[in-house]
Write a protein that binds this DNA or RNA. Structure first.
Length: 841
DNA sequence: AGCACGCCGACT
DNA sequence: GTCGGCGTGCTC
């Protein structure tokens, strides 16, 4: 190569030698992004949305998402290198990056917190620090002087070859292991390294196929048969294989079949092993999808009733106006059929569909219905699914294999790039709002914002619209479509009010059952029909109390009574998870007279067993539905009529249709309606309407027996007559008079500190500053929440209340945030923790 | 949020 | 004297 050419090549290289930097979002609650230098060999793999592995701090290795690639050299610090890139194509798209940033801004949290909630943990790698013996230390080893601890570690390493920090700590029985490790490192006896683990494991199956030569060569097969003549077990396997692959009928295609399908009956696994060893069969491992495959014909959708058709046309018309549509359709009006119709249209036009459902509704008939219609185009995203399954859904959406997702609130985070329809079923459900941890987002509102990004249509459906959404519809922000008829002409259930007070006075109550309800249950059972008993969960956990001194066992680090769990006889703190066994004697006075109080579904179930010993009773609550399929099993048994009485909480009210339920009993209407918060009426209307909807389908009019101490309570009349509009009119006036949403926007500020006094001072100070800026009437509190201490931190709350019109929310958010930083400057308040909950429910 | 570093009291 | 407790500050 000539001198000239060499020079020009150098020049060219020199010019190309721009260093790229990546701003990386890390899944940690810190504001902002972090800038890393992209090594040249990774340049072509790293783009917006790529997953990268970076070192953060001294030892943490994290997976982050690239938010920006640029050439600006950071001035104040030396950027570390990106260690690796994980994918060939980005796992997060630009819609998502924008969406995440919006969520962080709107809900006042860090983008890292959003990322953390968004990605299934299988896509987030974590590192584990490990140590191993330094192979070169053998030479030096003998001359070294080691302490007892050091020797213990070295000996353990000889046996184990690598140890994690936790293991070392366990080995030594000490938490402080760093000094010891440091000393060993200095002596060069050990090596320290980080192991990055990819947590996602594809699901595999073992397959068996016949080795090639037997397929091609008839005579080889002949020979094989002769060889196996004396080995009947192996021969049996070969015959089974041939019959399964139909090769005996002359088909010659190479076929791998499932190992499990071959080893049925008395065929032995060890014989097969021998066959594999002798290279007659070949065993392979095949990666398969965890997502259910659907066999057979997909179901055609049913034709719509004229009511449904009319609603559908109205919806399509409303979509033209580019506004979200609120579909107000009474229970049983057949909303699902309309959804299916819209989904089909969207999919046929090549768009993606997101169908949001509350968690409990998702495990039911709706999903199996969708499965029948849409088959493997449907992905289900549910919290009870394993993380690996979630990764598969994520990837499925990302590579366009899945175009329809039915999922819980977190499915708004999936990598859609072409959403054309978002359905939000049971729009009023408060479980769409996440409370702990941040991001405290509302999936309905987030989904509506997401729809703007994608230019997607939005349909919200419910029998009992939230006050917020209905007002939005009246304001013209949403389009309202009504579906007033019950599909199949079922009637509203008949309501009977059972007066608890009069029954109690005349001593006719049996435990918590009024004579009316008992009579009703008896009657229904005699008719061989089914009963659902509904018990509100709020504030109803059973606990222990000492008969002699009234002492109630409390959690040591939270300000709550421990909840008593009858089935395994333990006390559990529902806030921090602390568990303890039931004490034999009272901690306070030593008495043995400890009894259980409070009445949850467990207690109800026990009572029912005594009152109706013949009946099959099943309880359905958090406790009995912990595992993935337990909910489905309970429902199935009930559907098959194996259960007569189903006792449960809220989860009974969602998306379940049973034909033989003719009685619904409601226990604690009074508690629901008098719950101390401004949404209690709204919640009562929704809840009672929804559970009542479970009574009586098709031909029969069902019955609801509602136990209450005040049968004349005004809201009750509206619930009984199903008069949503009248409920709404009364409620909306209240909201206006008392300055609540939807006219005012709320931001809850949560302050925590381990010192009660300091917390109170700091909260007062913070509230004072807020009042100074916003005025007295816009700030409520500070006040102690019902649970005033969790995990040893005391809690205070402040509500910021601002008019939706006139005031710029973003300014207020900024102010609240800055004042928080300000207060934390004060040297007494440095460890104060501040959290925000925007639009709390 | 972790995690190191540093200062402090309390024990083998 | 170490061990283990926090408070404080930093992470590209």
């Amino acid at each position: 190569m000539s001198q000239l050419e060499l020079n020009s090549e150098l020049d060219e290289n020199f010019e190309e030698r721009v260093t790229y930097f990546a701003d990386v979002i890390l899944p940690i609650p810190l504001p902002g992004t972090y800038t890393y230098r992209i090594p040249r060999d990774l340049e072509e793999h790293i783009e917006l949305g790529s997953r990268v592995v970076v070192q953060f701090g001294k030892k943490k290795i994290l997976t982050g998402i690239v938010k920006l690639v640029h050439e600006t050299v950071p001035k104040v610090y030396e950027a570390k290198y990106v260690l690796d890139s994980l994918d060939h194509a980005p796992v997060v798209n630009t819609f998502q990056l924008e969406f995440f940033a919006w969520l962080a801004q709107y809900y006042m949290c860090t983008i890292g917190e959003v990322l953390n909630a968004a990605m299934p943990s299988g896509l987030k790698l974590t590192s584990e620090s490990l140590i191993q013996l330094n192979p070169e230390s053998e030479v030096l080893g003998s001359e070294m002087e080691y302490s007892a601890k050091e020797l213990a570690i070295l000996n353990a390493l000889k046996a184990n070859d690598r140890l994690s920090f936790d293991q070392v700590s366990e080995l030594l029985g000490v938490k402080m292991i760093h000094p010891v490790l440091k000393s060993l490192l200095q002596k060069e006896s050990i090596l320290l390294f980080e192991q990055v683990k990819d947590k996602f494991k594809p699901k595999t199956v073992k397959t068996i196929g016949l080795a090639g030569q037997f397929l091609e060569d008839e005579s080889a097969m002949q020979l094989l048969f002769e060889q196996l003549e004396k080995k009947p077990k192996q021969q049996a396997i070969l015959l089974k294989y041939l019959s399964l692959t139909r090769m005996d009928e002359g088909e010659t295609k190479v076929r791998d079949i499932l190992k499990s399908s071959l080893l049925t009956g008395d065929l032995s696994a060890s014989s097969l092993k021998t066959l594999v060893k002798n290279e007659i069969f070949i065993e392979k491992e095949k990666i398969i999808s965890r997502l259910d495959e659907i066999d057979g014909e997909l179901e055609k959708n049913h034709s719509l009733s004229s009511e449904q058709q009319k609603a559908l046309e109205e919806i399509l018309l409303a979509f033209q106006k580019n506004k979200p549509v609120l579909l107000h359709g009474v229970t049983g009006s057949g909303k699902t059929e309309i959804y299916i119709n819209l989904i089909q249209q969207a999919l046929e036009n090549g768009g993606q569909v997101l169908y949001l459902l509350p968690e409990i509704a998702l495990t039911t008939q709706i999903v199996s219905r969708l499965h029948k219609v849409f088959g493997s185009a449907l992905g289900v995203y549910h919290s009870k699914y394993s993380d690996n399954e979630r990764v598969e859904i994520w990837n499925g959406v990302n590579n366009a294999k899945i175009n329809l997702v039915a999922g819980v609130r977190s499915s708004v985070f999936l990598p859609f790039d072409n959403l054309s329809l978002i359905l939000i079923d049971e729009e009023h459900e408060s479980s769409y709002k996440q409370y702990e941890p941040a991001p405290r987002y509302h999936a309905r509102d987030a989904a509506i914002w997401l729809s703007h990004l994608h230019q997607a249509n939005v349909l919200m459906g419910t029998a009992t619209p939230s006050v917020d959404s209905y007002q939005n519809a009246l304001d013209g922000k949403y389009e309202l479509v009504e579906l007033p008829q019950r599909f199949g002409a079922g009637k509203l259930p008949e309501f009977e009010l059972a007066n608890i007070l009069t029954s109690r006075k005349s001593k006719r109550m049996k435990g918590d059952f009024t004579p009316e309800l008992l009579e009703g249950i008896k009657h229904t059972l005699e008719k061989k029909e089914q009963v659902i008993l509904f018990q509100n969960r709020r504030g109803y956990s059973p606990y222990l109390i000492c008969h002699d001194c009234n002492h109630v066992p409390k959690c040591q680090s939270c300000d709550v009574s421990l909840t008593y769990h009858m089935h395994n006889n333990v006390l559990i703190c529902h806030y921090c998870g602390h568990k303890e066994s039931v004490p034999a004697i009272c901690d306070a006075c030593g008495s043995t007279a400890i009894r259980t109080v409070g009445f949850g579904t467990e207690k109800l179930e026990e009572d029912l067993k005594i009152l109706f010993p013949e009946a099959h009773i099943q309880r359905m609550d958090q406790d009995t539905t912990r595992s993935k399929y337990s909910y489905q099993h309970i429902i199935d048994r009930f559907e098959r009529g194996e259960t007569d009485i189903l006792v449960g909480t809220q989860m009974l009210s969602k998306g379940l249709d049973f034909d033989k339920v003719s009685l619904v009993g409601v226990f604690d209407y009074d508690r629901i309606v008098h719950f101390p918060d401004f949404r209690s009426h709204e919640r009562a209307f929704q809840l009672i309407t929804q559970v009542s909807g479970r009574a009586g389908r098709k031909d029969d009019q069902g019955k609801v027996i509602l136990q209450t101490g005040e049968p004349d309570e005004p809201l009750l009349y509206k619930i009984r007559t199903g008069d949503y509009k009248s409920f709404f009119q009364t409620e909306i006036l209240e909201r206006q008079n008392f300055q609540y949403p939807p006219f005012y926007r709320l931001i809850k500020v949560i302050l925590k500190h381990k010192e009660k006094n300091i917390l109170q001072q700091a909260s007062k100070h913070y509230a004072g500053r807020l009042i100074g800026e916003l005025g007295r009437q816009r700030v409520l509190g500070p006040q102690q929440p019902v649970i005033s201490r969790i995990r040893n931190l005391y809690i205070e709350e402040i509500y910021i209340k601002i008019e939706k019109k006139k005031i710029n929310v973003n300014k207020v958010k900024e102010l609240a945030y800055k004042l928080g930083l300000d207060v934390k400057q004060h040297r007494d308040y440095k460890t104060l923790r501040l959290y925000f909950d925007v639009d709390p429910v």
